[in-house]
Nucleic acid binder design. Structure first.
Lengths: 118, 118
DNA sequence: GAATCATATGCGAGTATTCGAATATAATGA
DNA sequence: TCATTATATTCGAATACTCGCATATGATTC
């Protein structure tokens, strides 16, 4: 039954494993938006936006609500926002580590900058 | 520069978008393990384990430490454990919602169980 | 009903992932 | 040096993803 959980997690991750879809989820952070609004805000082809939304739906990341002519999307669970937030902090932690390493490398080999790493 | 962050996030997600790799990260939760230990605990082909570990390395999810003959892996940042933990809670929340829906459906159509949802 | 707007789906090409089998490398010990 | 152990890399086939283009569906308005 643990397998089911890992399967579930990996599908969530797969759903989020694309920058466009992450942008969509981030835009939905503060409330629902229609497919058209998402498409416009992200400058996507209509079909492409719809395909990405289909993935997010399939992976249970968003839910959709039909209102007349259009379809409104919202995040199914705030937990996912929390996940993105953790990764944001992680990113900056990583970033400063990297910057520190670069600074250190620069100090150790001050003559040439950018000593190509293979 | 927000694009870079989304790119980064999506790569992390891509790295975790596979049940085997999730299992690896979970096994590393309590400390480092060698490639061989991971392979054995998960019953993987040696090459396959190594490939998955390469992905986890490439996506900056784990770090490796060589000790003599073998290579020990550990999680680069506890944040990732936290992410998995959030998804675990999310999973059970989803699960009970689903169970509730099924119970409700069963109550509404008590004669036949499993009215195939297409 | 016809025209239109919002969204979804199907198709095909290009690219990326995943796996097992085979091979390569690197450290250890005889 | 040779053999052995631990790990990594390469290759090829199968599968999956992503995109643009074309087409389909569904609601609204005339």
């Amino acid at each position: 039954m643990d397998d089911a959980l890992r399967q579930f997690k990996s599908e969530i991750f797969q759903g989020l494993a694309n920058p466009t879809r992450i942008a969509m989820v981030e835009l939905l952070r503060d409330g629902e938006l229609s497919a058209g609004q998402l498409m416009q805000k992200l400058g996507l082809e209509q079909a492409n936006a719809s395909q990405h939304l289909a993935v997010l739906r399939a992976k249970q990341i968003v839910v959709s609500r039909k209102a007349g002519n259009q379809v409104y999307y919202s995040i199914r669970d705030r937990a996912l926002i929390e996940v993105l937030e953790i990764l944001r902090r992680y990113f900056y932690a990583q970033l400063s580590t990297t910057v520190d390493l670069l600074k250190q490398a620069a100090r150790e080999t001050p003559k040439t900058r950018a000593s190509s790493h293979k």
